[in-house]
Amino acid sequence: MKTKHMVLLGLLTAGAAILHIVESWLPTPASAPGVKLGLANVVSLFALAFFGPREALYVLGARIVLGGLFSGAIAGPAVFLSISGGMTSLLVMALLNRWAQPPFSLIGVSVLGATAHNAAQVAAAAILVGSPGVLWYLPYAVLFAVPLGAVTGMTALFALAKLPQKSLS
């Protein structure tokens, strides 16, 4: 890994961790628990598009650990939800980005990734509470994921367009 590469990944990780922490300060709507803005997902998506799945996984993993550390509950349920949501989302986005980019744009990849993120979080919450009743929130989680995922995708596209490509080499 080149030094420039590593520095850029470090910057991305720091940005993702900050977004993750700021997002945890925001209140969640009572009618739809588990719904988050997915700000940190911008960085995951950006890393995926700019570098690749492996680098995106590094950034995601470091971000979740840092976010857990800063929230003070590294082994708490929030981290469990972050991991299940983040990993599922990244897996879906990586597969789509690799194999289905021509039909989908980055916005579509992001929307499906956000949906996978929220769906996985609701499923994880249902497992955590041990009650399948939590799955009733799934439609709400998906409803919120679509516009938020679209915004995330557009943000990543803007960032990709503005960032000079030669800054990598």
């Binding site: 289905a100 039909p103 989908f104 744009s105 916005i107 579509g108 929307v111 499906l112 679509v146 679209a150 557009m154 596209l157």
Partner: peptide, 11 residues
């Protein structure tokens, strides 16, 4: 920054 047909179907 255009939505493709696949994006629209998925959404």
């Amino acid at each position: 920054m255009r939505l493709t047909w696949a994006d629209k179907i998925a959404i």
